[in-house]
């Protein structure tokens, strides 16, 4: 088992991840129920999109206390890769693995479109398949994806080069056009856009596949 996809009540992009990692890339992948606290067999933890626990209280607020997420904190602390997509990004910020928060889109629209993203870093296990400054097209689908952090946190993110993806068209009012950030160590990535929805040619684009391929190649190299 290499990839692990955490499944919360209300997750709805979990099987899309599975389709990419196992279906397209032929990597062993285990679906991890939120009450499972043992991730010792897993190399890459993916926290997928959806509406975990109905998005009650705040997006991601309740998922944060699940046994699988607690185990994910240990996984991240050990320096192993953690990818959070959309609701997964919201959960990682609520859990404190990534700074800031995702709040309601500035324009009040639920944005559901293909968004151009500019790649800010290519030295991470997630982004080695991209070129620095490359623009890739990845779908976004969220109502609460506006990245917010206080001025000091934003300055620290920029100084440490933790902004991994920036919107070319900023569809939600995110500060500094932030679409995805990593932690200081670079092993935790959170992003609102859905790379798993741009991996199979049938879905109209494959710019997201390189992210999962890069992770899979890390596993081979390790």
């Amino acid at each position: 088992m290499k990839f692990g996809v955490i499944v919360f009540p209300g997750s709805n992009c979990d099987r899309d991840i599975l389709w990419v990692t196992q279906g397209i890339l032929q990597q062993p992948t285990r679906m991890v129920w939120h009450e499972d606290s043992d991730l010792s067999d897993i190399d890459v933890v993916v926290v997928p999109g959806g509406f975990s626990y109905g998005d009650y209280l705040r997006c991601g607020a309740i998922a944060r206390f699940s046994p699988a997420l607690r185990a994910t904190l240990d996984h991240a602390k050990a320096g192993k890769p953690v990818l959070g997509v959309c609701n997964g990004f919201q959960i990682l910020t609520e859990a404190g693995l990534l700074p800031g928060a995702l709040v309601r889109n500035a324009n009040l629209h639920f944005v559901c479109e293909r968004s151009p993203l500019i790649v800010g870093r290519t030295d991470l296990p997630f982004t080695q398949g991209y070129r620095q400054g490359q623009t890739i097209t990845i779908p976004v689908a969220h109502g609460e994806g506006r990245y917010y952090a206080d001025a000091d946190t934003l300055a620290r993110l920029e100084d440490n080069h933790q902004v991994v993806f920036r919107y070319g068209d900023n569809p939600n009012g995110s500060l500094n056009d932030i679409a995805g950030i990593c932690n200081a160590a670079g092993n935790v990535l959170g992003m609102m856009p859905h790379p798993e929805r741009a991996s199979d040619p049938l879905t109209g684009g494959t710019d997201g596949l390189a992210l999962f391929e890069a992770l899979a190649q890390q596993l081979v190299a390790a």
Partner: peptide, 10 residues
């Protein structure tokens, strides 16, 4: 206060 509230504005 520093956080934009689009719902409140609406």
């Amino acid at each position: 206060p520093s956080v934009l509230d689009p719902a409140g504005a609406a």
